[in-house]
C-alpha cells in the first residue's frame, strides 16, 4: 500500500523532503488524536512540482488582478473573466455583501462601466484576503492566477501532470490532494487511472467546487476506486467553500463531503490544518488499512 501526496500552490523554492515531513507529521497527529496506530513503515510518494509551476508562472507573465489596468470598455480577456467569475463565486459562498465590496473599493469616479467593474473585482479580492487573517495581501490573486495557468494551459498541465504521473505504480494507492493538488491529482487519475490501483481519493481544501475552475476540466468524472472519494474542508476555507456535489461538482456516484474540519492554520486552508483532523485521519487510516 502506498500513499501519494499531491501538494498545492506556493510551494516553490521549498525542500520537498521538508514538505513531505510536514504532511506526514500532521497525519501522525491526526492518527494520534484518533487513537490509531500510525502505519510504520509507510511507503510515501511526494511528487514535487512547486518549482516547475513557479517557473511557468514567471514565464507566463500573467499579471495579478491589482496589476491589471482595464482599457476603457474593452471586452475582458479570458483571464480577466476567470478571475472575476471565480471571485464572484467565492463572494457568494462566503456571504460577502456588495456593500462590503463597495466600501473596500472606495469612491469610484463616474467612469466607463468596464473600469468600474474591474475596480470592484480588485476590491473583492482584497476583501477576501482580509476576511482570512492568514492571507496576506494578494494571496487569493496569486492562487487564482496559478490555478488559471494550470487549468487553461495544456502545456503547463502536461508538465505538472507528468511529475505526478511519474510516481504512479501498480500497487494499491491512497491519493491525497490538497488545494490545486486536488485538481492535478483529479486530472492524473482520470487520464492515467489505468496505471494505478486507486484505493481511495481524498481531497482536502479543494477548489473543485468553484465552477469557474471545474468548467475547464471537461466533463466531470469519478475516478474509479475501491472506496468512495472523500472530500474534507473547513467551511471557512475560502477556496473550498462549496461541497463537491450538485450543482457545484456533480458526479455519479456521489462524493462524500465532510465540512467540519476546523483548520487551525491562519488562513484555514493550510495542509497542516487538514490532515490532523480526526475524521480525515480515520478516513485515511481506513483506506490504508484495508
Amino acid at each position: 500500500m502506498r500513499l501519494l501526496l499531491v501538494h498545492g500552490i506556493a510551494q516553490g523554492g521549498k525542500n520537498p523532503a521538508d514538505l513531505e515531513k510536514a504532511w506526514i507529521d500532521t497525519l501522525r497527529a491526526g492518527y494520534k488524536s484518533a487513537n490509531l496506530p500510525f502505519p510504520d513503515p509507510l511507503a510515501v510518494d511526494f511528487p514535487y512540482y512547486g518549482d516547475a509551476l513557479d517557473a511557468r508562472v514567471a514565464k507566463s507573465k500573467l499579471p495579478l488582478p491589482q496589476q491589471i489596468i482595464p482599457k476603457g470598455g474593452e471586452a475582458p480577456s479570458p483571464y480577466e473573466d476567470f478571475l472575476r467569475n471565480s471571485l464572484e463565486e467565492m463572494k457568494e459562498s462566503a456571504n460577502i455583501s456588495d456593500a462590503e465590496v463597495a466600501a473596500e473599493a472606495g469612491p469610484i469616479p463616474a467612469a466607463q462601466k468596464g473600469i468600474q467593474n474591474w475596480r470592484l473585482t480588485q476590491a473583492l479580492a482584497r476583501v477576501i484576503d482580509k476576511r482570512l487573517p492568514g492571507f496576506t495581501s494578494g494571496t487569493i490573486e496569486r492562487y487564482l492566477r496559478d490555478v488559471y495557468l494550470y487549468v487553461t494551459n495544456r502545456s503547463v498541465a502536461r508538465e505538472i501532470n507528468a511529475i505526478v504521473e511519474s510516481k504512479l505504480t501498480d500497487e494499491p494507492t491512497v491519493v491525497i490532494g490538497h488545494s490545486l493538488g486536488t485538481v492535478v491529482a483529479y486530472r492524473v487519475l482520470l487520464e492515467q487511472g489505468s496505471k494505478v490501483k486507486l484505493r481511495r481519493y481524498i481531497t482536502v481544501g479543494s477548489p473543485l467546487g468553484i465552477r469557474t475552475i471545474s468548467s475547464n476540466l471537461g466533463v466531470l468524472k469519478y475516478p474509479p476506486a475501491d472506496l468512495n472519494w472523500y472530500n474534507a474542508y473547513d467551511d471557512g476555507d475560502v477556496v473550498a467553500l462549496n461541497p463537491l456535489k450538485d450543482p457545484w461538482f456533480k458526479t455519479d456516484p456521489a462524493i462524500t463531503n465532510y465540512n467540519r474540519v476546523r483548520n487551525t492554520t491562519d488562513n484555514q486552508h493550510g495542509i497542516i490544518g487538514y490532515l490532523n483532523d480526526v475524521t480525515v485521519a480515520r478516513c485515511v487510516a481506513e483506506a490504508l488499512a484495508s
Binding site: R211, S214, S215, L217, G218, V219, L220, P247, F249, K250, T251
Partner: peptide, 8 residues
C-alpha cells in the same frame, strides 16, 4: 447543459 459539464 450544466456548468461544469456532466454529460459527454
Amino acid at each position: 447543459a450544466t456548468k461544469p459539464p456532466t454529460y459527454d
